[in-house]
Amino acid sequence: MSSNMSAGEAHGKAEAKAENAVGAVKDTANQAADKAAEATDTNQGQAQARKEEASGILQQTGEQVASMAQGAYEGVKNTLGVGENQKK
């Protein structure tokens, strides 16, 4: 191979290298976009699971508060003598 490359050959090789570089950059960008989409899906799934867990905890807490309120109500009724358990 001659060390004197024609301008056309040099241009062709440079163009091919540029196209390869652009292709590599596109591939890398696509891979990054895919990973970002996967991370988003994972985060959305985790957020949904946490939302459901929090909802369950709030429901359980609400039931406990209602039960405590009912117990307090029954205690007041019994203290005032209007409860069903009072002897007549």
Results as ranks from 00 to 15, higher is better:
residue 7 A to N: 13
residue 58 L to R: 13
residue 27 D to S: 06
residue 40 T to K: 15
residue 66 A to E: 09
residue 25 V to G: 00
residue 38 E to P: 02
residue 57 I to Q: 07
residue 67 S to V: 00
residue 81 G to A: 05
residue 79 T to I: 04
residue 47 A to M: 02
residue 5 M to I: 08
residue 26 K to F: 00
residue 13 K to N: 08
residue 37 A to Q: 13
residue 77 K to W: 01
residue 73 Y to P: 01
residue 68 M to R: 14
residue 65 V to C: 08
residue 1 M to H: 06
residue 8 G to P: 01
residue 28 T to N: 07
residue 48 Q to D: 14
residue 65 V to K: 12
residue 46 Q to A: 15
residue 17 K to L: 06
residue 63 E to W: 05
residue 39 A to P: 04
residue 1 M to V: 09
residue 80 L to Q: 11
residue 15 E to S: 12
residue 86 Q to H: 13
residue 27 D to T: 03
residue 67 S to T: 06
residue 73 Y to D: 13
residue 53 E to P: 01
residue 57 I to M: 10
residue 66 A to S: 09
residue 77 K to T: 07
residue 15 E to Y: 02
residue 50 R to C: 04
residue 11 H to C: 06
residue 75 G to H: 08
residue 46 Q to V: 14
residue 76 V to N: 06
residue 1 M to I: 07
residue 12 G to H: 03
residue 1 M to F: 01
residue 72 A to I: 09
residue 78 N to D: 15
residue 42 T to E: 14
residue 33 A to C: 02
residue 46 Q to P: 04
residue 36 A to L: 10
residue 12 G to A: 10
residue 32 A to S: 10
residue 64 Q to N: 08
residue 55 S to G: 01
residue 41 D to C: 06
residue 86 Q to P: 01
residue 22 V to P: 00
residue 24 A to I: 01
residue 18 A to C: 07
residue 31 Q to D: 13
residue 10 A to N: 06
residue 35 K to I: 06
residue 36 A to Y: 08
residue 5 M to F: 04
residue 49 A to K: 15
residue 35 K to R: 14
residue 38 E to N: 09
residue 53 E to S: 08
residue 23 G to A: 10
residue 48 Q to R: 10
residue 70 Q to E: 06
residue 8 G to T: 07
residue 70 Q to G: 00
residue 56 G to V: 04
residue 44 Q to G: 09
residue 79 T to V: 09
residue 29 A to H: 09
residue 44 Q to R: 15
residue 36 A to G: 01
residue 48 Q to V: 15
residue 22 V to L: 07
residue 33 A to H: 10
residue 86 Q to N: 14
residue 52 E to Y: 03
residue 62 G to M: 00
residue 33 A to D: 11
residue 47 A to V: 11
residue 74 E to W: 03
residue 81 G to C: 09
residue 59 Q to E: 11
residue 7 A to F: 10
residue 82 V to Q: 15
residue 84 E to K: 15
residue 57 I to A: 09
residue 55 S to R: 12
residue 88 K to H: 12
residue 60 Q to F: 11
residue 70 Q to I: 05
residue 73 Y to C: 10
residue 40 T to P: 06
residue 54 A to H: 09
residue 22 V to S: 10
residue 12 G to Q: 07
residue 64 Q to V: 12
residue 3 S to Q: 11
residue 58 L to W: 10
residue 26 K to R: 13
residue 40 T to C: 03
residue 22 V to T: 08
residue 86 Q to A: 11
residue 6 S to Y: 05
residue 4 N to Q: 07
residue 70 Q to N: 01
residue 57 I to V: 12
residue 31 Q to W: 00
residue 81 G to I: 08
residue 85 N to H: 15
residue 3 S to V: 09
residue 52 E to P: 04
residue 57 I to F: 04
residue 69 A to E: 14
residue 87 K to S: 14
residue 24 A to T: 00
residue 75 G to I: 03
residue 66 A to Y: 06
residue 15 E to L: 04
residue 86 Q to V: 13
residue 38 E to W: 07
residue 63 E to V: 13
residue 4 N to R: 11
